[in-house]
Structure formats: C-alpha cells, structure tokens
C-alpha cells in the first residue's frame, strides 16, 4: 500500500511584506519553506511507514524551484518524490490545483494502490483549506479533515479510526480506506532530518511530471481551469493605539482604567 503526502512550497509568510503601491507580495529575497501544516502530513506518513512498512510518496505542484521542498521530503525519508510542474499548471486556483493533484494520485495508484492521502489542513499563503477536500471529492474517496490523532489503522480490513479536532470538541470517526486526511499541528511533532538523510537526498531523484505525463484537458488546469482569481491583496490598516492613564505614577489606577476599557469593549469574554 502507498501513502501520498501532498506538500506545498510557500513563501515564509512571516517575512513577506506587501508592496504598498502595487498591492502585491514582495517576494524578492524571501525564502521558501515547506508549508508548516504539510510537515505534519509528511511526518504522519513516515510514522505509518515506520509502523506498517507502506511506501510513502511526496507530491507537490509548483514551479521547478519547488524541487527544494521535495528534497526536504526526501531528506526526511520518503521513498519517492514527484514534482508536478508545467507552465500550463500555472495560475491555478484550488479547483485547478486539485484536478492536477488528483490525476497525479490516480497515476501513482496504477502501480501501487493508494490507501491514505495526507494533506496539511491548509497552506499559510492561500489559507483556503480547499485543496485536500477537492482531491477527495474528485477521487471519490472519504475525507477526514482536521485530524489530530490516528487512533487505529487496520490495513487488512482497510479501516481507519481518527480523532478530528473541531471547535471546542473532538469527534471520533471511523472510515474505510482509501481516505484523504487533512492534519492539524497537534497530530505529531515532525522529525528533524539526519545529516546522512540530507546528504543522500541531494543524490536522489525528484521525478518531474508535466502535462504530457498527466494528459489533462487544458481547460481544467492552470489559469484556464480556474474559476476564481485574486483581484487585490492588501494588509489591513492597524489603528494607532492610545495611551491611557499614567502607569509610572499611578499603576493601580491605570490598571483599573485598562480593565474598564477591556470590559466596555467586551474583549475579555470568551
């Protein structure tokens, strides 16, 4: 059985700034990282591999430089890494992206049955949380989102039981394989690559698949296949703060003022 981990290369958003004139991301000199939620997806794939002996394939759609992200996956120990890259894939929204990823997963399944697809719950650049569910829908498999614990996995009976972390509660769900799982950060603590793992990953192959491999209709992929697009991006203006009281000479009075202020704006209730 095969596990597929879908990962994405994202700009390190803590370092991203928005150009005030053009309203676009200033990407110059900003390093790329593996989407943090995806590192947990990778980790869980590797843990199941360590326990059950499955094969783990990491796939990513992106420009050729996203190879670096797949190298990181190789360094962590995935068996196979596939980069889906083609100019015609460019400009894709979540629908077009899930079309490409779905087709790639189908193709991977031709040689080795895919049992579980792991995705991060969302990416830190787009924050849509749609691609994982999109893949499940198009593959026609079960989807388990926001998973924070794998409780049971029976590869023979092909069943899985997980805990989903929802607002204020947990939900225990059982489902048949194949299944698409999106993960939250509480699921695990990602491993750190060993030095031999890192060095060997530089020698290993990242497979490049383009649309000649996937043979998708160009109307369903890339910009053409995307019913949505970003028309504007901006950072919200933050109002200037205000100084209240005199903390140096009257700390108690100032603290009271602050509490009143917070209560009046109802900022202390949960």
């Amino acid at each position: 059985m095969q596990i597929v981990a879908c990962i994405k290369q994202v700009p390190d958003t803590t370092q991203v700034q928005i150009d005030p004139v053009t309203n676009t991301l200033v990407r110059e000199g900003i390093p790329f990282i593996v989407n943090p939620y995806d590192t947990h997806a990778l980790e869980e794939s590797l843990r199941l591999r360590d326990k059950f002996g499955f094969n783990v394939t990491a796939i990513s759609m992106g420009p050729p430089n996203a190879e670096a992200t797949l190298r990181k996956a190789l360094a962590l120990g995935v068996d196979r890494a596939v980069l889906l890259t083609d100019r015609v894939f460019g400009g894709a929204d979540t629908l077009a992206t899930s079309n490409v990823l779905t087709e790639a997963i189908r193709k991977l399944g031709e040689t080795d049955e895919v049992g579980i697809i792991f995705c991060g719950k969302q990416t830190i650049d787009g924050d849509t949380a749609q691609v994982g569910p999109g893949i499940a829908t198009r593959l026609g498999c079960t989807q388990l989102t926001l998973v924070d614990k794998i409780l049971e996995l029976d590869p023979i009976k092909k069943r899985i039981k997980v805990s989903r972390k929802l607002e204020g509660r947990h939900e225990i769900v059982e489902a048949p394989l194949p299944v698409m799982i999106t993960v939250v950060r509480e699921l695990n603590r990602p491993r750190y690559p060993t030095v031999p793992g890192r060095l060997e990953s530089m020698e290993r192959e990242v497979e490049f698949w383009n649309n000649q491999t996937l043979k998708l209709d160009e109307q369903s992929i890339g910009l053409k296949g995307s019913p949505t697009w970003v028309s504007k991006i901006f950072s919200p203006q933050r109002d200037k703060g205000e100084m209240i009281g005199d903390g140096v000479h009257d700390p108690v009075g100032t603290a009271n003022l602050l509490i009143d202020k917070l209560l009046s704006k109802d900022l202390l209730s949960i």
Partner: peptide, 10 residues
C-alpha cells in the same frame, strides 16, 4: 544524537 539520530529535547 542530533546528526545521526535526530534525537534531542523537543
């Protein structure tokens, strides 16, 4: 521990 085993305090 760090480089061969990736074993260290979290």
């Amino acid at each position: 521990l760090v480089q061969m085993k990736s074993q260290f305090p979290e």
